[in-house]
Amino acid sequence: MRGNGDDPVRDFLQDANFPRLPRGVMFGIVIVLVGLSMLLTVFYQVEADEVAVVQRFGRYQRQTDPGLHFKWPFGLETVTKVKAQRVLKEEFGFRTEQAGVRTRFSNRSYPEESLMLTGDLNVADVKWIVQYRISDPVKYLFGNRNPRKALMDASQIAMRTTVGDYTVTEVLTERRLEVANEVQQRLQTLLDLYDTGLRVVTVKMQNVTPPSDQVKAAFNEVNEAQQEKERKINDARKKYNEQVPLARGEAERTIAQAEGAQINRVNRAKGDVARFTALLTEYTKAPDVTRRRLYLETMRAILPSVGQMYIFDQEQSSSLLPFLDLKRGGGGLPIAPQKEQ
């Protein structure tokens, strides 16, 4: 039977001689296709770093953890997988073209992100990164239309607000860590307010410089001077910690020696006083005997240290007599002078 030309497709089907299949075979083929489709759409796999959000007729139903799960087939339930365990990163003021051992950055600048005004009305070029995770997959999918854009805008708001509370010197040098911590707190507050389902892991200040080369050079000198100042302060504290304990030890040793000398002198003085008092008591009782004893004791103490002694005697014709030194032995006996005939 030939077609009339009004419908080419119908004419082709009418002219083609396709073999006619039995109804049972056709029914079996349909059953197999339906079964395969059910098998393909009823199971799904969630990876280790993912969380699956299941929707039924477009409405949220449940979350599923990593592993093999099943759902209603034929699109009655749909699954959206979210990388909830992965730490994501956004860059501001610069872009990384290739990460690795030798990271390559883009030469393009992003002044609309990095240039901002400080509290002392100076302009700073601030580059930073934000690392974050998806903490609530439901809010991430349904709470905000574009969570990534909300994160980008909120990060710039938090950074500009915080930098505006500090001077350019503080942002460039000693208070960078404090600025980053404050930005992280403000950013997390904004993300919770916008129902993004994101949690900030960290905010890192990559590079903060003045905008122009001349101003940059001046601020680099200020930064170097600040670092030199800190280094000298640390060196001074090191020397202080080394010298002060030594000086204190020397002072304590000198004080101990002085106290020992004081005790010694006092004890000797007390001993001398006691000896003089006892001597005075004996002298009062027997003046002549005590005087002679003192004389003899004094001579006994002095004579051993005298090299040569002479005795003057008025009864001798020669009044000068050598004293016999018994310590020298018999070979050195002096000869007495002879009287003149």
Rank of each mutant, 00 (worst) to 15 (best):
I134G: 02
K139W: 10
Q131A: 05
D125S: 07
M152S: 11
R104Y: 11
S114F: 02
S135Q: 09
G119F: 08
N107L: 08
L121T: 15
S109P: 12
P111H: 03
V123Y: 05
E113F: 04
R145L: 04
N144V: 03
N146E: 02
V130P: 08
F142E: 03
M116Y: 01
T118L: 11
P111S: 04
R148T: 11
L141G: 06
S135C: 12
D153W: 09
V101E: 15
E112G: 11
T103A: 14
F105E: 08
Q131Y: 06
A150D: 04
P111Y: 02
G143S: 06
T96G: 07
P137G: 03
V126N: 04
P147T: 06
M152C: 08
L151I: 01
R102V: 14
R145P: 07
R145C: 06
P147K: 09
V101W: 15
R102E: 12
N122Q: 15
L117V: 13
M152E: 05
R108A: 15
E97V: 13
R104F: 15
R102N: 14
K139C: 02
E97Y: 08
A150E: 05
M116G: 13
S114I: 01
L115M: 15
I134M: 05
Q131N: 06
F105C: 11
D125P: 02
M116F: 04
D153Y: 07
R102Y: 14
Y110M: 03
L115Y: 13
R133F: 07
I129C: 00
E112C: 07
P137D: 03
M152P: 04
Y132L: 06
R148Y: 11
L117M: 15
Y110C: 02
R104W: 14
T96E: 07
I134N: 00
V123R: 12
I134V: 00
Y140F: 14
L121E: 12
V126A: 07
